[in-house]
Design a protein around this nucleic acid. Structure first.
Length: 565
DNA sequence: GGCGGTTGCGCG
DNA sequence: AAAGCGCGCAACCGCC
């Protein structure tokens, strides 16, 4: 049961090469279509870490064959981390190998078979190239100032890439019926050609209030002119500004915008394009955000309105375990800063209530506003006004974010708890700053430079918190994924077949959004899954922050729909 | 008719 | 019109 590392590369147009690098053995060549079998064989014999160029290109085909891997190392994603990592002093040549900077070869649908990178992405695909890059990465980590943390980050990032592919393969169980009922209830009946009934009615009410039967409601410039003609002196057509005016057009116009948003973003056309076989299969993009958060492409997976969660429905005989972390970012901040006062305020309850109890501010709403302001860099308004009180009560936490902001304003880089480093200031930014410090600089130059410095400070301020929260979430996902894999499969007769061959008979992750997960599980496993979700959250906290007393309480529900109860 | 910029709004 | 971070997407607009 010794642990092995197997590097996968290409050995020709239709052959792959597998090399077990910890052993003195030659590489093995197999036809591309044998990869899933080879992986299944090797996984059955003991613990193994698969090293490959790009999980998003290779793993979907493996899953489609009903095979899963326990551990992987994604050379593309790890390269991105180490290339920028401040703690990597001697990079062992890694940074000069720019060919690993190429984007993923994964198509939006993710259903190519075993495509190990190709000419269109520029990612290297030979076994030799993969082995060489893997060795550079290990050496770079080993010689860094924080090898343990970086190794953890790279492993978590790679595990996340596995989860992303698995989430797409399994999909979110989706009820077209529930979705359609919701659309009809909100938008009215669909009519051939034109807009749904309630949208038409609301549009008519807007035109009536404007006393303009032909007013265009979908073109911002034209709508703005119509509003001006009707005596409403707004500078934009946004809901926030409209809501501040008392005029008969305001209510119907806001209603119209809301309905149109639902219709265009998540209406019947969206369902037609993105929901197939009772599953919504978004494409997740690990590390798609500079902070390390995931992005998504296609389907707007990370922007599904909460009102649509009612369409997320378990298969018959199955249920959903939905969990989100309460106030993840301020908790992460407390642990990073070793701010025991903030950690105590967060302990075992609503963190904002804890802040009120400590007397920093008067109400929960104020506590939330102040804390968000501290992490986002508010300077004005209510939020900015409350900040000094937070600074007095939680000086260590506030100093951490203030330091990050100052570093960014001065052109420096910051890093997350595990060592993901923010991008360096660009040439344009540097030029703007040096221009402003020149003797001949105008007042306008100085203002612009100062503003862009502040902008950058707010970015680095938030980077450390958002990025570390993303690391905690990766650890949570990776740990939970392993726990779910240990559940016994249910009878084939009870299979959720639309979840694909790999997940049809076992509890599986179905959705992930920054600090929230949904697990689709056979009914009889629901309680055990809920326990696993809680245990993995606690485990993630220990993995990142050791014995520092910070907890990560979950808001957890078990039920057939993922709607917040 | 394709393409990038702008506006507005959904999510955390 | 957000104030104060990070995203993706639809629709429109002006331009080539």
């Amino acid at each position: 049961m010794a642990s092995d590392t197997v590097v996968v590369g290409r050995a020709g147009s239709d052959r792959l090469a597998l090399l077990t690098i910890d052993r003195d053995a030659p590489s093995v060549e197999i036809p591309v279509e044998r990869l899933a079998d080879a992986i299944a064989d090797r996984e059955a014999r003991g613990e193994v870490r698969w090293v490959w160029a790009d999980t998003a290109s290779i793993y979907p085909g493996v899953l489609k064959a009903g095979v899963r891997v326990a551990r992987a190392w994604d050379l593309r994603l790890v390269h991105g981390i180490l290339r920028d990592a401040e703690g990597v002093v001697d990079d062992h040549g890694l940074r000069s190998h720019r060919e690993w900077d190429a984007g993923s070869a994964a198509p939006a649908t993710g259903d190519t078979l075993f495509d190990l990178g190709d000419a269109s992405t520029g990612l290297p695909d030979s076994l030799d190239a993969a082995v060489a890059e893997y060795r550079r990465q290990l050496a770079a980590i080993a010689s860094s100032s924080t090898p343990g943390a970086l190794r953890l980050l790279c492993a978590a990032e790679s595990a996340g890439a596995l989860v992303a592919a698995e989430l797409h393969a399994a999909g979110v169980p989706w009820s077209r019926t529930a979705h359609e009922e919701m659309l009809e209830r909100q938008l009215g009946t669909r009519r051939g050609g034109g807009l749904p009934a309630r949208i038409e009615q609301t549009a008519a009410a807007v035109r009536e209030a404007l006393d303009d039967p032909t007013a265009s409601l979908d073109s911002q410039p034209r709508l703005l002119r119509s509003l001006h003609r009707a005596g409403l002196q707004v500078t934009s057509t946004s809901r926030w500004e409209l809501a501040e005016h008392d005029h008969p057009v305001v209510a119907p116009l806001i209603a119209y915008k809301k309905l149109m948003r639902l219709y265009t973003a998540n209406g019947w056309a969206w369902m037609q394009e993105w929901v197939h076989d009772d599953r919504f299969r978004p494409v997740y993009v690990p590390a798609g955000v500079v902070t390390g958060r995931w992005a998504s492409s296609g389907g707007g997976a990370l922007q599904i309105p909460r009102s649509l969660r009612t369409a997320v429905r378990a298969d018959p005989g199955w249920t959903l375990v939905t969990a989100d972390v309460a106030q993840l970012e301020p908790r992460v901040l407390a642990a990073m800063a070793r701010d025991t006062a903030l950690a105590e305020a967060a302990s075992g309850r609503d963190l904002y209530a804890g802040i009120v109890e400590r007397g920093a501010v008067g109400s929960r709403a104020e506590a939330k506003l102040a804390m968000l302001g501290a992490m986002y860099g508010a300077t004005t308004g209510e939020s900015g006004r409350l900040l000094p009180r937070l600074r007095r009560t939680f000086p260590r936490a506030m100093q951490l974010v203030d330091d990050a902001a100052r570093t960014g304003e001065n052109g420096g880089v910051v890093h997350t708890w595990l060592g993901r480093t923010s991008p360096a200031a660009g040439d344009a930014w540097q030029q703007l700053q040096s221009l402003a410090s020149d003797a001949t600089a105008s007042g306008a130059d100085e203002t612009r430079a100062r503003r862009s410095a502040r902008d950058r400070g707010r970015f680095t301020r938030n980077f450390v918190v958002q990025g570390t929260a993303a690391e905690w979430a990766l650890a949570w996902l990776a740990d939970l994924r392993a726990r779910l894999a240990a559940f016994p499969p249910v009878d084939a007769a009870r299979a959720a077949s639309a979840s694909g061959p790999m997940f049809a008979r076992s509890p599986h992750l179905a959705f992930f959004l920054h600090d929230e997960i949904v697990v689709h599980t056979p009914l009889e496993h629901a309680d055990a899954v809920a326990a696993a979700v809680r245990e993995s959250a606690a485990s993630a906290g220990r993995l990142l922050f050791g014995t520092f007393p910070i907890d990560f309480p979950l808001d957890l529900r078990i039920g057939e729909t993922a709607e917040k109860g």
